[in-house]
C-alpha cells in the first residue's frame, strides 16, 4: 500500500525505508496512507485528461471543461486526507488512524447511507488527562 509525503506529495511503497528516515525530496517524516481506490481514481483522472490535452495540442488546462473539472475534483480528494472515516461502499471503509486520534470529533455510529452520528457533548467538554508528575 502506498504512502504519500504530506509536504511534497512524493509517493513511497509500504516497505520503503524513507517512511522511517524521512522523505528523499523534502526530508519530512509525515506521510499519509493512500488506498488502492485513491490510486485507481487518480489513474482514471489522468486517463480522462490525456485525450483532451492531445486534442487541443497544448498543455494548458481548461477549467471550463466539465471533464477536466471532474478530474480536478478527484485529484483534490486523493490529495487531502480530511476524513477520518471514508465510506467506499456499505461495508467497505478506509480509516485515517491519525485523524481519529487527533480529531475532536467522535464517531459513535455509522448509518447505512454513509452519514455519521457524533457525540456532541464529548466534543464540547473533552476530558482532561490528569498529570501526576
Amino acid at each position: 500500500m502506498p504512502h504519500k509525503c504530506l509536504k511534497c506529495g512524493k509517493e513511497y511503497d509500504e516497505k520503503s525505508p524513507e517512511l522511517f528516515s524521512g522523505c528523499r525530496e523534502c526530508g519530512s517524516r509525515k506521510f499519509y496512507f493512500i488506498g488502492e481506490l485513491s490510486r485507481t481514481e487518480k489513474k482514471v483522472s489522468d486517463d480522462i485528461r490525456r485525450p483532451v490535452l492531445k486534442k487541443r495540442g497544448n498543455y494548458e488546462y481548461d477549467n471550463r471543461n466539465p471533464v477536466n473539472e471532474r478530474a480536478e475534483i478527484i485529484k483534490d480528494r486523493t490529495h487531502s486526507p480530511i476524513e477520518s472515516i471514508r465510506i467506499i461502499e456499505p461495508g467497505s471503509y478506509e480509516l485515517n488512524i491519525h485523524k481519529l486520534v487527533e480529531s475532536d470529533d467522535r464517531v459513535v455510529r455509522l448509518n447505512d447511507e454513509g452519514s455519521y452520528m457524533l457525540d456532541l457533548i464529548s466534543m464540547v467538554h473533552p476530558k482532561k488527562r490528569k498529570k501526576w508528575f
Binding site: S84, G91, S92, L95, R106, L110, K127
Partner: peptide
C-alpha cells in the same frame, strides 16, 4: 452479516482511537 460486522468494526476502531486519546 459481513456488512454489519464491517460497520461495527469501523465504529469499534474509532472508539478505540478515541480512548487512546483520553482514557
Amino acid at each position: 452479516e459481513a456488512i454489519l460486522r464491517a460497520r461495527e468494526a469501523t465504529e469499534g476502531v474509532a472508539e478505540a482511537m478515541h480512548w487512546l486519546r483520553e482514557d
